[in-house]
């Protein structure tokens, strides 16, 4: 079997399993909506303030929602032994685990992209920034998923790893946050955003290419 066929199998099995346990994917999204609701309640519903801080809020909430979904990536496979079977396949593990990253993105990154106009609406984002927000999420979330998988693989054997994962991951998320929010802000002010989006895409390409190596090393360490 070619590595590509296996990759597809791993991905479709993951999606099938997610379909059986929808709440795992949906809960982080509801969490995201709730966090976003808290801000108008906290700082007041004034449309000016909201639209000024909207890019930051949406992106910080997206980072937090990503953290909530981290456990889903490997925990079950680790607990029931599927992960050690993945390690024992003749195909390279780094490639196989990238399928898990993609399934995480499809279930946590992509829904964010789709939800983004709603989030923008809630926070009174200027109309000109809607596109930039969706694009920034589209280009930025793959890197988040790749980093999330890295963090997950490193903390697998730990009983209480979730707080630690946040500690590890949040600093690594910072560049993505900076360029993404800047893109949305610039778009809101009617300026060009190609630069920021290009950098975001570059970060994602770099992360998605290199992270599987770290994830594979982490998974081998954890399974051991």
């Amino acid at each position: 079997m070619s590595a590509l066929q296996l990759w597809r199998s791993v991905l479709s099995k993951d999606l099938r399993l997610a379909a059986r346990r929808r709440s795992d994917a949906i809960n982080p999204l509801i969490f995201l909506l709730m966090v976003i609701t808290l801000f108008p309640l906290g700082v007041g519903p004034g449309p000016d303030i909201l639209s000024r801080i909207a890019p930051g809020i949406i992106w910080v909430a997206a980072l937090l929602a990503t953290l909530l979904g981290v456990d889903r990536i490997f925990k079950d496979d680790y607990a029931d032994g599927s992960l050690e079977q993945l390690c024992l396949l003749p195909q390279p593990l780094a490639f196989t685990v990238s399928a898990k990253m993609v399934s995480h993105w499809l279930l946590s990154g992509l829904p964010l992209v789709i939800l983004s106009p709603l989030l923008a609406l809630l926070l009174n984002l200027p109309g000109s920034a809607y596109g930039a927000l969706s694009l920034s999420l589209l280009f930025g979330t793959p890197a988040l998923s790749a980093l999330a998988a890295t963090g997950a693989s490193l903390t697998l054997p730990l009983q209480r790893g979730s707080a630690l994962v946040s500690l590890i991951l949040l600093p690594l998320f910072i560049p993505i946050l900076i360029f993404a929010t800047s893109a949305v802000e610039s778009a809101g002010m009617g300026m060009a955003v190609h630069g920021q989006l290009a950098i975001l895409a570059a970060i994602s390409v770099l992360t998605v290419t290199l992270a599987p190596l770290a994830v594979a090393a982490g998974v081998r360490m954890s399974v051991n």
Binding site: D80, E84, L88
Partner: peptide, 20 residues
Amino acid sequence: SVYHQQLLFIGHKPAVKAEL
């Protein structure tokens, strides 16, 4: 990869998905 092609390992954990 050659070795793992020739190997079947079943450990303590069943690698069975409870949801399926």
